[in-house]
Amino acid sequence: MTLGEIIKTLDCRVVAGNTNLDAKVRTGCGCDLMSDVLAFIKPGAILLTGLNNPQVVRTAEIAEIRIVCFVRGKQPSQELITLARESGITLLTTSLPMFEACGKLYMNGLSGYDE
C-alpha cells in the first residue's frame, strides 16, 4: 500500500512529517509494547500503536520506522510532534480502534511483520 492509501483506508489525520503520499509501505505492526517493536518489526513498516509518549518516536527512529499511526483517536503531544519532525517520521491519527485499523490494512494487502 502507499501512504496515501493507508491514510484513506483508516481516514487518518496527518499530524507531522513528510507528505510523500506515494511512499510504499509493505508491512505493518500493531503493538503497544516498544520492546516487541524493537525485537520484531521490519525496517520501513508502519507502526500502529495505542501508546502515546515520546518513546514511540524514539523506538521508531531506532527501528527505522518512518510512519507511526496512533489508534483510537489519540492525539500526540507537541513534544512528541517536534521529536517526530526532527527525526523525519510521519505521524498519523485514526479514530479507529487497534483491531479494526490493523484489520482494514491487512484486508487491503498490507502483510504482517512475520513474513
Binding site: 503497544d32 509494547l33 516498544m34 520492546s35 516487541d36 524493537l38 525485537a39 500503536t49 501508546l51 509518549n53 518513546q55 514511540v56 523506538t59
Partner: peptide, 14 residues
C-alpha cells in the same frame, strides 16, 4: 511507557 515487559535483555542478546 511501553517498556518493562521483561524483553529488554532478551532483545539485547538477540
Amino acid at each position: 511507557l511501553g517498556f518493562g515487559a521483561g524483553m529488554g535483555l532478551t532483545n539485547i542478546r538477540k
